[in-house]
Simulated scan of single mutants.
Amino acid sequence: MNEKEIQGLIDRAIEDFNGNLNDLGSAIGMVMLSRRYGWRVVLLIHSPNTVRKYLKILGLKNLRDVAPEVGELAHRSNAWRLVDGTANFWKVVRGQISGVRSALVEKSADEH
């Protein structure tokens, strides 16, 4: 999706929404972050149930429709750095490997 399509998606979700605005805000935030960090990082932050809930709020079938697999800021994610290059990504997402999920991000020393 391009910028205009994503803005239209968000505008429609806002106009059509019924429920707790915290959920809507979190769903929009998930999409916006996924565009820079990638859908893989988002799946390391949120549980599969939360991602499904947010996708439903936005009327999306898949986060891949709006975000790259790995975004330009993925390297800042502590969780992504732990699974990048390993075969453990889906095991972590499914909860078969614990202690990896994290929403923490850090700039590298050369980014300061």
Score class of each variant (00 low, 15 high):
L55I: 11
M32P: 04
M32I: 14
L58F: 06
L55V: 06
E111Q: 07
L33Q: 06
K4M: 12
N49W: 07
I14S: 06
I28Q: 00
V100Q: 02
V41H: 00
V70C: 02
D65H: 07
M1N: 04
E106Q: 14
G19T: 11
L24R: 07
S108N: 15
E111L: 11
L58S: 04
R81Y: 06
H75D: 04
E15V: 06
N2A: 14
A27F: 00
R36S: 13
N78K: 12
R81K: 15
E106Y: 13
L21K: 14
V83Q: 00
E15Q: 09
R52P: 03
D11C: 08
A13I: 06
A27N: 00
V105I: 14
V92H: 05
G8Y: 10
M32G: 08
W90I: 10
D84G: 07
R76K: 06
M1L: 11
V41M: 02
L104C: 15
R64V: 10
G71S: 07
Q96Y: 11
Y37N: 04
M30Y: 04
R81S: 02
Q96L: 10
G59W: 03
S77T: 01
S26Y: 10
L104V: 15
E106R: 12
V42K: 00
E72F: 11
D11R: 05
E15A: 12
R36N: 10
I97G: 03
V41L: 03
V100C: 02
G71D: 03
L58R: 01
L43Y: 01
V31A: 04
Q96I: 09
R12A: 05
M32C: 14
N88Y: 14
E72M: 09
Y37W: 07
K91E: 12
F17K: 10
E106K: 13
N62Y: 11
K91T: 03
Y54K: 02
N49I: 13
I28M: 05
V93W: 02
K53D: 09
L60N: 02
S26E: 12
H46V: 05
L60C: 09
M32V: 13
E72C: 14
P48T: 09
I97P: 00
E15S: 08
E106D: 12
P68W: 06
V70Y: 01
E106T: 14
L44E: 01
G38W: 00
L82Y: 07
V70M: 07
R36H: 15
R52K: 14
L33A: 12
V92W: 02
S77K: 00
H75M: 06
I45F: 05
A87P: 14
I57V: 12
